[in-house]
Design a protein around this nucleic acid. Structure first.
Lengths: 210, 210
DNA sequence: CCTGTTACTATACGGTAGTTCAATCACGAA
DNA sequence: TTCGTGATTGAACTACCGTATAGTAACAGG
């Protein structure tokens, strides 16, 4: 008797695209841009070489798709409310949570930044989306700031985003050197001077002390 | 009469190595890790393909050499004293000066971070040097801090380094969005709360206000 | 002048990059 | 069942990757 031939799985375009994006992210998380290659990705996904071009047109197309999903998931994660926490506190907790502040996720971001800086296609995509990111952080800051403080929260948001990016870089480069608690304390060290909510300070400023 | 044959220039190993490192840096500044290739670098340097292997053994060897020089020059720049400024103020001014805070230099750093995160050879080199960087910043901070403040300046230094890295990322990704003045203000916004030198605040904290 | 050392060139090689394309296969509509 | 659409394959293709190596040319020491 003959063995039944393995049924070829055939997915909708959307599902297959998502699978390829996942495979690409796994490769990037593992080895940065050097692992973002046709062969590595299709091996990870378990499909043939032609599929990437078929679904994304080119590797640049896949790169943009990966960036878009990373961005959307990032925004969703920092926007999710948390039990008993203010919007800004929820945001900071999300940023230092394992879901976002992991070596894998941050290595993907570090790789994407390197590409944004040098790849016009990806840079255009980034330009179109970045202002929304800053605005969502600025909104959380305004909510936490005393009214009429005269502080431009767009500027504070930009500074805070820089800090968050830098925390990501450090975490990638020296995974053990920057624990979640230190990251949280650093965030509040930058934010607190601009926020005097009620009588008691917001978050843990004293994390910076010995 | 015959034209005189062009005299083949022959340099000492050290000079040639430096030239190749410069060419490699120019390529990295132009296009990130994708331009860090044998062909691009030897074309930039105007030499033949074999020279890289001859002088550095491999591309990894050249990469480590580039990192080392970038690191040494960075340390030297932030350690240089400036007329009428304290050590910490000189350090911040150096960080936001065109020599360090340029798109070219920061693109090289962004590229190197991506490699450090994924290339064991470069990571080892980084590990061996990073603590010296943090220590030199912590020393400048201790000098500017009030005695007995109970603040761990190693921790503040780590936070500050994160911020500086993040400023670099932003500058690479959105060169126009982050002017020198904003970078300077952001640095002092993080540092000032930990430093109450004399009666007047250090640096320009009010750069954060409208 | 001779000779050893070494910077340097030029080319070859195997491997892998991204893309193209004709053929095939699975599924839904008619 | 038939047919067409579109997902999927797999090989071919050119270009480029990093490295190895044999040969050449310039310099230093004698």
């Amino acid at each position: 008797m003959t063995v039944a031939p393995p049924k070829k799985s055939r997915l909708s375009a959307g599902k297959r695209r998502a699978l390829l994006e996942d495979a690409a992210r796994a490769c990037m998380a593992r080895g940065g841009i050097r692992e973002f290659t046709v062969d590595k990705i299709v091996a990870e996904a378990g499909v043939s070489r032609g599929l990437i071009t078929h679904h994304f047109g080119s590797m640049d197309g896949l790169l943009v798709a990966v960036y878009s999903r990373m961005y959307d998931e990032w925004i969703a994660a920092i926007s999710a409310p948390r039990q008993g926490l203010s919007r800004l506190e929820s945001l900071v907790e999300a940023l230092v949570s394992p879901a976002l502040f992991s070596r894998e996720v941050l290595n993907i971001w570090l790789t994407l930044w390197g590409e944004i800086a040098n790849n016009p296609v990806l840079r255009a995509e980034h330009r179109a989306r970045y202002s929304q990111y800053r605005e969502s952080i600025a909104a959380a800051l305004r909510e936490a700031a005393p009214p009429g403080s005269g502080i431009d929260m767009d500027t504070v948001a930009s500074a805070f985003i820089c800090l968050v990016d830098g925390l990501g870089v450090q975490r990638c480069v020296d995974p053990d050197l920057l624990p979640e608690t230190a990251a949280r304390a650093t965030c509040w060290a930058l934010l607190s001077p601009h926020l005097t909510l009620g009588d008691k300070p917001v978050g843990n400023v004293r994390g910076m002390e010995t």
